[in-house]
Design a protein around this nucleic acid. Structure first.
Lengths: 128, 128
DNA sequence: TTGACACTACGAATACCTTCGTAGTAAGGT
DNA sequence: ACCTTACTACGAAGGTATTCGTAGTGTCAA
């Protein structure tokens, strides 16, 4: 049995988000993407990717001189893991609680609420 | 301006959950509660509480020899902060995304789904 | 008053995360 | 051939989180 997937750290998540959005990318590309939000050294990103590679969080293609990285797991799976983890750790498994607190403190649009209803319908339909 | 509330760490959250459930408690009480789930030294809990006191995460009443600790913020507020943080960091602010991933990978009861619908109605009613 | 016991304070070890500098290497142009 | 530039590897520093041992102190019963 391979060790179960690790929860990504804050920085790792930022990198994963870039990879999920862009698809396979070089360090340069990831660094550029992250630099739009915050200042960050190139080698910092490189080091993180190297660490993530050893963890299996990302995969690396070395056929090009500039290695190409991609997320090791589909975004869906990692997001589900993170949401599920918080569900357990903070809300004792209650999705209602989680949603209530997520909605509190922000002004959700009518559209978003409609979307939530739609998702519930769909979820229930697929559930049986 | 006081510094904005810190996000509790994993261990701190475990302690906060005990405090939220029990109300003001001594180290001994907290330690006993946590010990039911996992083995953990008494002084480890004490140290954590001391650190949390300096951070303001908990408040300490020292009038008794065994100090009595209580959460510095109401559970609602901390939970909202945690959920909101994840909402931004993982789901780019989309509550639908968050809920969908929280529901995926678990078997929610019909009751829970009903509850979610009810919450949406209520939320929408209070929103205007 | 002394011994046993429960409690706090605090240092320290360990682990992990994040950051970046430096060194070395490959590639391409002149 | 050589210079410049972009890249990887890696060590190391600084920070935070977690754990626990030890020392010191208060309390109470015998």
């Amino acid at each position: 049995m391979t060790t179960s997937p690790q929860k990504p750290t804050a920085s790792e998540l930022e990198i994963l988000r870039v990879l999920w959005a862009r698809g396979p990318s070089t360090v340069r590309e990831i660094h550029d993407a992250l630099s739009e939000k915050k200042s960050l050294g190139y080698t910092t990103v490189l080091k993180l990717l190297q660490i993530m590679t050893t963890k299996g969080t990302v995969r690396r293609n070395e056929t090009q001189r500039a290695h190409v990285y991609e997320a090791g797991l589909p975004a869906e799976q990692t997001k589900r893991q993170l949401a599920g983890d918080m569900l357990q750790r903070v809300f004792e498994g209650s999705a209602s609680q989680l949603m209530m607190h997520a909605l509190a403190g922000r002004k959700s649009s009518r559209e978003e609420i409609e979307e939530l209803r739609r998702l519930l319908d769909e979820y229930e339909r697929n559930r049986r």
